[in-house]
């Protein structure tokens, strides 16, 4: 682990990515401690305040402290990203391993399901689900998790297929190891590297989908703060103040940039074979 971090730190882009990721983690995890105000506290007479010492990022159209809302928005983004990645990583990996070991018909069925999910534009799918079930944080996690399943499923299946007949697994099998033992003890640890890299690369995707859904009003419900709702509120009041849009846009940019650079550096550190020319 220390070696991986050292390798990431050794590259300038990796270093920048790591710094940004750590910064975002501190903002999100420490929101309750750092936040100077309740993010939902209204101060209507002090709307559209420019950045001041009292309100470092100014206030929004309801007089809420933008800095506090930005911190809680970071928390929302991380919460959605981590939950979504965990759900889709676990379920997708299990489905990928299942497809690799299952009879041909079942394998085909799983692959067709992946194709169907991939063929839906994630935003259209999300709007359809929200129309049926209504908006909410849990539903955002569910929607994005489903759209990411094929990413993890396909990689897991390909990795298992390449390992399935490896000599060390043949030897285990000859020694009487059960299939469950083979999968849990030998296969899963060996395929986790590429999957973790993929997960880190998918975090910015999840963050932007969540922000997009919240911007459209079908993501996190009000008054919860999200970078998407902050952008939307700011957009509706753009003629009054540019700060909500500027800061929420900046946070989204930094988060996507940070996690992307970090993911690429992690990929190169864990599995240099996956490195692609850019």
């Amino acid at each position: 682990m220390r070696g991986v971090i050292a390798q990431i730190w050794g590259r300038s882009t990796g270093r920048l990515g790591l710094i940004l990721v750590v910064l975002i983690l501190i903002m999100g995890l420490g929101a309750q401690v750092i936040s100077p105000y309740d993010p939902n506290e209204l101060d209507i007479l002090n709307r559209f305040s420019d950045p001041t010492w009292i309100h470092p990022m100014g206030t929004d159209h309801l007089g809420r402290d933008l800095f506090s809302r930005m911190l809680y928005g970071t928390q929302t983004a991380l919460l959605v990203a981590v939950s979504t990645i965990i759900v889709s990583l676990v379920v997708g990996t299990l489905m990928g391993i299942g497809a690799a070991y299952a009879p041909r018909e079942v394998e085909r069925a799983i692959l067709i399901l992946f194709d169907i999910i991939s063929s839906f534009p994630s935003l259209v799918f999300a709007l359809a689900v929200v129309a049926l079930l209504g908006p909410g944080l849990g539903k955002v996690v569910l929607i994005v998790s489903i759209t990411l399943l094929p990413h993890f499923g396909r990689v897991a299946r390909a990795q298992v297929l390449s390992l399935k007949n490896a000599p060390f697994l043949e030897a285990e099998r000859v020694l009487g190891a059960s299939r469950a033992r083979l999968v849990l003890v030998h296969i899963v640890p060996n395929i986790m590297g590429p999957l973790v890299v993929l997960a880190s690369m998918d975090i910015p995707v999840v963050i932007t989908i969540e922000a997009g859904l919240s911007f459209l009003g079908v993501g996190v419900p009000p008054p919860l703060a999200s970078w998407g709702t902050l952008l939307n509120d700011g957009y509706a009041n753009l003629t009054e103040t540019i700060w909500p849009v500027a800061f929420a846009g900046l946070m989204l940019t930094l988060a996507t940039l940070g996690f992307t650079l970090f993911g690429e550096a992690l990929r190169d550190a864990i599995d240099p074979k996956l490195k692609t020319d850019r």
């Binding site: 939902n40 506290e41 209204l42 209507i44 159209h61 309801l62 009003g217 009000p222 008054p223 509706a236 009041n237």
Partner: peptide, 15 residues
């Protein structure tokens, strides 16, 4: 309705 004015009103009433 998803009009900004009504959404702002809704948030104030909620608080």
């Amino acid at each position: 309705l998803n009009r900004p004015a009504f959404q702002a009103a809704g948030l104030v009433v909620q608080a």
